[in-house]
Amino acid sequence: MTHIKRLAADFGLPRIIITLYLLALFLAAPFVGVDLPASISDTMIRIGMNGIMVLALVPMIQSGCGLNFGLSLGVIAGLLGATISIEAGLIGAWGFIVAIFISQGFGAVFGYGYGKLLNRVKGGEMMIATYVGFSSVMIMSIAWLILPFKSPTMIWGYGGTGLRTTISVEGFWRHILDDFLVIQIGDNFKFPTGAVLVFILMSLLIWVFFHLKTGTAITAVGSNPTYARASGINIDRMRIVSVMMSTMLGALGILIFEQSFGFIQLYEGPLYMAFPAVAAILIGGAGVNKATLTNVFIGAALYQGILTMTPSIFNAVLKVDMSDVIRIIVSNGMILYALTRKSKVAK
């Protein structure tokens, strides 16, 4: 009994429930006529799509800035990269690479300003991040209306002003990573090798970074600011670095999301982009002040698994689509759980 209790304490009760729930969904799948390979394939595609967005949260959590609800700032940088690259008429791998470079530039600039701001509001980062994110999305919505874009694939035809709400990247770089070295088995199973490889590669880079001097300094700032100050670490600088990294990773993350999804969503699209990523990393066991790459992997897999499996199983069994409601309850319940706990991390 105590053994189970300790396990529950280590792993976190909500995470156990979520894992069991997902397990039950997968076990039930063959009996209710849900195509398991297709579901697994869907889950993999989604992990590839969303993985880097989840990864983007790690630096800021590590530096003690909390959950980056302002990830939409990074998303905006990514959108700028994507639209400018399309405006320039670049297609294929080149278009994608240029989009990444441009978005990283914007991400660095936005991240720097955002980091400067967060340094002046230590202790209240999360709420401010949320609203800074929201208001920048709205400023950008105005910008999408008035920026002088010309490419006919992106602007409204007759009678409209500004860019379209959704822009297809078909013919530019749709599935450029998903289809790179893709493993296709039958009609229903597809493994998006490219996207997953990029996710693993970026995770490796982050892992290496956090074992180098700057990375360990960032962790020190997050876990023990007093000690960090005493050992001569420039706290504000480390925090800015982490915010910039987070924003730039967010920019990369949205580009990878878009190449797989096939569309760029402007205007209010990025408004809530941060929330699923935050829910995922918390489901993976991260706390408000500590996150590991294991948290990222487990979290992305569990969260995307639930998102894929819930609608198909519920539709097959109950003939109702409650997936939206379940998604809302699971993800926000997880964030709530993390906020109300003393910052302790599950293994």
Partner: peptide, 20 residues
């Protein structure tokens, strides 16, 4: 969009001022 920006922005501003 502007009025939404104002709604979000004024909340952000108030929170920033409070933390300062």
């Amino acid at each position: 969009y502007f009025r939404q920006f104002v709604s979000y922005g004024v909340i952000a501003l108030a929170l920033v001022l409070y933390e300062w």
